[in-house]
Design a protein around this nucleic acid. Structure first.
Lengths: 130, 130
DNA sequence: AACTTTGTTCTATAACTAATAGAACAAAGG
DNA sequence: CCTTTGTTCTATTAGTTATAGAACAAAGTT
């Protein structure tokens, strides 16, 4: 897994780390049981404080995406088959989609863009259809 | 236009105001030339400081969605027919969509949800097809 | 011309967040 | 027993959020 942080971006570092792990899981680059690097190692790689990485991992644990344990480290948990989108996700999506439409992009093109993004991390996940 | 702010939400007040204006524009509830309430009026309605509303309006101006002038107030500008989604929008969309997929929601269902949201503010905008 | 409306700019303050720093502790594993 | 790795604690610096009050500048109204 390749992670990058942009120290001068306006997105908080811990959020960038969290987002990239989420995307790696969506892509299938990280699957159930995949280990994440130790906080101190990742922090050293990025040249940031390990507390910052810790915060990202803590977020991911709260979201149920990884499991943390001492000595062992962080591993990705099973995709919980939530089946249901949390209401706050829908609210954030509404805002984001509205932003594009408000700028004059046609709903059709917005939807096509979403589809392209979704298929970009779709194929790796061959759904078990038994 | 009906705006609401939740003072106890974890989303900043100025961001909530900005988001709701964006959604109103996307819905067509606000169109080119529609006036927004004066900052002090809106602030009084919400029970917040007028500097907070000011910040939201300033954001909307930076995004090119409204025009501000003294004495006259804030009015919605023409949908600029950008035609192109800014790259940072795509990045935010990627993160949001990945979040759903990482939680085990199927890409198909995510796309359907996006489509539903988009059509919810689509119909008001009868595109001029001459 | 005088007055009102409305955005703009300035300083200031309190509470919270982001990031860094260092230290010590606790459990898993070799 | 030692190393690895997450957990918790205190502390500091810089930036953000929201409030507060004052003054100014331009547009519109009377």
């Amino acid at each position: 897994m390749i992670l990058n942080v942009d120290l001068s971006a306006d997105v908080p570092i811990y959020q960038q780390i969290r987002d990239q792990v989420v995307e790696a899981i969506a892509h299938g680059a990280l699957t159930e049981g995949s280990p994440l690097p130790p906080t101190r190692t990742l922090a050293a790689d990025f040249g940031v404080n390990f507390h910052t990485v810790n915060k990202a991992y803590d977020l991911l644990r709260q979201e149920g995406l990884i499991r943390l344990s001492r000595g062992t480290g962080a591993v990705v948990t099973a995709a919980a088959t939530d089946q249901v989108l949390p209401s706050d996700w829908t609210a954030r999506a509404r805002t984001l989609l509205a932003e594009a439409v408000a700028r004059g992009i046609s709903p059709d093109e917005v939807l096509r863009t979403c589809q392209t993004l979704l298929t970009s991390f779709g194929p790796a996940k061959q759904e078990d259809t038994r």
